[in-house]
Simulated scan of single mutants.
Amino acid sequence: MRDPARVGLRRQAVRTRVGPVVLHVGDRRDDGPALVLLHGAAGSWTTWTPLLLAAASEGRPLANVVVLDLPGWGESPLPDRPLSNGRTALSIDAYAGAVRDAVAALGHRSWTLMGHSMGGLIALHLAASEPARTESVVVVSPTGPSVLEAARHPVRSLRREPAFVGLRAAMGAFSRGGAAASVLLRALDRMHVLRPVVAPLFARPADIPPGVASALSREVRPQAFSIAARLAARYDPDRWMDITAPVRVVRGSRDAFSAEADDGRLARLLPGSTLSVLPTAGHFAHLEAPFAVLDRLG
């Protein structure tokens, strides 16, 4: 679903430290914190529509919703101020700063953060950087220690994280194709070959509507994904130990990226956090089990 009005949102563009960012803002607003939804490296704001629809269907539409297209995804371009050596000006801190700038532009002084995959990493980083402004954090299959290690040492991690290593290699190849990569992805979608490619991301691939694979092919940004993977390789998750807000971790029992082995490591990095494992979900729990994820918001 690409029409924001159908889920009670309106499009808005704001200027941030890394350039323009497009976001979608909920019509319902009160004096509480912003609810900031951050998508993963294979998505855009549209990946949160099942969660928003679930909230509306239960008669509890969410207040102060801010759904971003992170820099380089959706309608938000990559930074318009590259460094002198031609490399991108992005960093994990810059992603978090762009989120901070966007929320501040809307007049919010505090926030609840919900992030998926890479968006979960950014949410945790922002919560650690801005403890006084962060009310709570919910992360869905966050990019955790195992994937961060695989980003640093892909060959060594191939057996442990084959899905991520394979996806990173594919995105790296596509990113070298420039604009032609998007054309090729759309062509592969029309040939109906993308569904088996994305199937490992879901617990029950046969139950996923065909449009989901098409949506993922439209939203994937190989260059932005490759940049994010390089940044992840340099990221130190120990900074999450500075988070003071309550943190809820959600993952599917058949998550191709967030392995069970990470549960203990995340518990160490996020003291006092709670973990929910959803048996009906894979990596995209907010798509596969939106009501269960919604319940974790409290």
Score class of each variant (00 low, 15 high):
residue 49 T to L: 09
residue 257 F to V: 04
residue 172 G to M: 11
residue 287 L to T: 03
residue 7 V to N: 05
residue 232 A to E: 05
residue 241 M to V: 00
residue 205 P to N: 04
residue 159 R to M: 10
residue 127 A to M: 02
residue 143 T to L: 14
residue 127 A to V: 10
residue 270 L to V: 08
residue 93 D to H: 15
residue 73 W to C: 11
residue 233 A to T: 07
residue 276 S to L: 13
residue 44 S to R: 14
residue 39 H to Q: 11
residue 155 V to T: 13
residue 19 G to N: 12
residue 201 L to A: 12
residue 148 L to V: 03
residue 256 A to M: 04
residue 28 R to A: 14
residue 196 P to T: 13
residue 4 P to T: 01
residue 239 R to N: 03
residue 12 Q to Y: 07
residue 67 V to Q: 12
residue 27 D to E: 15
residue 179 A to N: 14
residue 89 A to Y: 00
residue 6 R to I: 02
residue 148 L to K: 03
residue 149 E to L: 04
residue 136 S to N: 08
residue 113 L to A: 02
residue 216 L to Q: 04
residue 4 P to F: 03
residue 133 R to L: 03
residue 72 G to H: 03
residue 56 A to N: 10
residue 222 P to F: 00
residue 22 V to T: 14
residue 289 A to Q: 10
residue 78 L to R: 12
residue 145 P to C: 05
residue 288 E to F: 00
residue 234 R to M: 08
residue 245 A to H: 12
residue 237 P to Y: 03
residue 277 V to Y: 01
residue 1 M to W: 06
residue 175 S to R: 14
residue 133 R to W: 02
residue 279 P to M: 04
residue 216 L to C: 08
residue 35 L to C: 08
residue 186 R to D: 14
residue 7 V to A: 07
residue 77 P to E: 06
residue 73 W to V: 06
residue 110 S to D: 12
residue 10 R to C: 08
residue 233 A to S: 11
residue 160 R to F: 07
residue 45 W to S: 06
residue 154 P to F: 01
residue 222 P to I: 04
residue 256 A to Q: 01
residue 135 E to V: 13
residue 18 V to H: 04
residue 40 G to I: 01
residue 261 A to R: 12
residue 158 L to W: 07
residue 194 L to Q: 02
residue 185 L to F: 09
residue 108 H to W: 14
residue 109 R to G: 14
residue 251 R to T: 04
residue 136 S to L: 02
residue 57 S to R: 15
residue 29 R to I: 08
residue 290 P to A: 01
residue 205 P to Y: 01
residue 92 I to V: 15
residue 266 L to C: 06
residue 110 S to L: 07
residue 173 A to Q: 12
residue 287 L to Q: 02
residue 265 R to W: 04
residue 135 E to N: 07
residue 294 L to I: 06
residue 203 A to C: 13
residue 268 R to V: 09
residue 35 L to P: 08
residue 96 A to C: 10
residue 122 I to D: 03
residue 164 F to W: 06
residue 263 D to G: 03
residue 175 S to W: 10
residue 279 P to D: 07
residue 204 R to E: 13
residue 31 D to H: 11
residue 273 S to L: 01
residue 102 A to D: 05
residue 181 A to P: 13
residue 82 P to C: 00
residue 74 G to L: 07
residue 58 E to C: 15
residue 226 S to E: 08
residue 101 D to R: 00
residue 282 G to P: 04
residue 177 G to D: 08
residue 118 M to Q: 12
residue 244 T to R: 15
residue 59 G to E: 08
residue 197 V to Y: 08
residue 194 L to F: 03
residue 284 F to E: 09
residue 214 S to E: 13
residue 148 L to F: 06
residue 47 T to K: 05
residue 13 A to V: 14
residue 280 T to Y: 10
residue 259 A to D: 06
residue 288 E to H: 05
residue 163 A to D: 08
residue 122 I to H: 02
residue 69 D to E: 13
residue 39 H to A: 07
residue 13 A to Y: 00
residue 251 R to G: 03
residue 255 D to Q: 05
residue 214 S to M: 10
residue 124 L to P: 06
residue 243 I to G: 06
residue 247 V to I: 13
residue 286 H to A: 05
residue 46 T to Q: 11
residue 254 R to H: 13
residue 66 V to L: 10
residue 34 A to C: 06
residue 231 L to P: 05
residue 103 V to Q: 05
residue 34 A to D: 00
residue 240 W to E: 06
residue 208 I to V: 15
residue 123 A to S: 15
residue 215 A to M: 15
residue 79 P to E: 00
residue 87 R to K: 13
residue 135 E to Q: 11
residue 90 L to G: 08
residue 9 L to F: 01
residue 74 G to E: 09
residue 246 P to C: 05
residue 183 V to M: 09
